[in-house]
């Protein structure tokens, strides 16, 4: 009989295809794993509604668990995924990779004019940076520029 912990461990090597330093566990998208004899059910919360990486993530999760039994992936929308679920280790990995991690908590975003957060440059660590665009190379990122080292960088925005 396979232990639930073995299934979780197996998912530690499944990486986000668009941010390849983060595992699906760092990202916090795996909500639950259930198993009974050789049937495994995994609850996954999508990061963004239209994120094209979600299909790839689902098939990689299935692949990683296939040796343990039949895998059924269940998409869970409630509660909606938030950047608060990215682990502390995941945040460190993001910054080391050159992507500024989300600043603060994704508190209620019900204001149409939320203040722009102060984001630290992942390269030179300067706090003097500016927002270039709310939308970056993938749905989850915004584009910033460091005003000290001048380098543009991705910011994993709060959601």
């Amino acid at each position: 009989m396979v232990k639930t912990q073995e299934l979780w461990d197996a998912l530690a090597s499944v990486m986000d295809p668009e941010v390849p330093v983060l595992s699906v566990l760092d990202l916090g998208v795996i909500r639950a794993i259930r198993h009974e004899s050789n049937r495994i059910e995994v609850d996954i919360s999508p990061t963004y509604t239209g994120c094209p990486a979600m299909d790839v993530i689902s098939s990689q999760v299935r692949e990683a668990l296939l040796s343990f039994g039949d895998v059924n992936i269940v998409t869970v929308l409630d509660p909606p995924w938030t950047t608060d679920w990215i682990s502390a280790e995941g945040r460190n990995k993001l910054e080391a990779y050159g992507i500024a991690p989300p600043v603060g908590r994704a508190h209620d975003k019900r204001s149409l004019w939320a203040p722009v957060p102060s984001v630290r440059c992942p390269r030179c660590k300067s706090a003097s940076t500016k927002l270039i665009s709310h939308f970056g190379s993938t749905a989850c990122k915004a584009l910033y520029q460091c005003l000290d080292c001048q380098e543009p960088f991705d910011y994993f925005k709060c959601l």
Partner: peptide
């Protein structure tokens, strides 16, 4: 219930759209 969950998820993304266009 399902509509409620879809909307709660999309609301967060839409707040970025609304900010951008405004």
């Amino acid at each position: 219930e399902r509509l409620r969950h879809i909307a709660a998820k999309a609301l967060k993304e839409t707040s970025y759209h609304a900010q951008f266009s405004a």
